[in-house]
């Protein structure tokens, strides 16, 4: 599917989504609450069939957080980037680890480093850092006087 076709298809599912076609792949920006239904559509629709979630990460935009999902369809070969916007004070988004199993560890990583809470995640704990770590290191306002050397 080309970008236009993907865009048309996605507008059917989610009329409020904002598209950005500037980059290599189609970017879709949505609200965090819209993510789970859209994810199910992306995975289950036979035309889209996005079965391969190859990257899950968070980005701190200072005003809000986004969770960025990179999806590919093994069968069709098309790629889409979904950006779900979360509230910075209370970042909550539904987990997708029932849809793509790889999300389980990747979401734990995003929780560990950004503090994004994935609702209904089976095992949401710190992944890399120790359990008693304070703060979310990859957020822009994270301060660590000892370990971070600024350029």
């Amino acid at each position: 599917m080309t970008k236009e076709e993907l865009k048309a298809k996605l507008t059917e599912f989610n009329p409020t989504a904002v598209f950005d076609e500037a980059g290599e792949w189609l970017n879709v920006s949505i609200e965090a609450s819209e993510w789970l239904p859209l994810a199910q559509q992306l995975r289950n629709s036979a035309e889209l069939d996005f079965d391969f979630l190859f990257s899950v990460t968070g980005v701190d935009w200072k005003t809000h957080l986004t969770v960025v999902y990179h999806l590919r369809s093994i069968k069709h070969g098309h790629i889409i980037v979904v950006k779900a916007k979360c509230d910075r004070a209370k970042p909550e988004i539904e987990t997708v680890c029932n849809i793509w199993k790889t999300a389980e560890l990747n979401e734990r990583e995003a929780y560990d480093l950004f503090g994004i809470i994935f609702l209904n995640h089976p095992d949401l704990r710190r992944l890399f850092l120790t359990d008693d770590w304070e703060g979310w290191p990859l957020r822009k306002d994270y301060v660590d006087e000892i370990n971070i050397i600024k350029l």
């Binding site: 710190r126 890399f128 290191p137 990859l138």
Partner: peptide, 10 residues
């Protein structure tokens, strides 16, 4: 995990 996490992304 995390025994040699260096937070290369940060």
């Amino acid at each position: 995990l995390g025994y040699i996490h260096r937070s290369i992304e940060k």
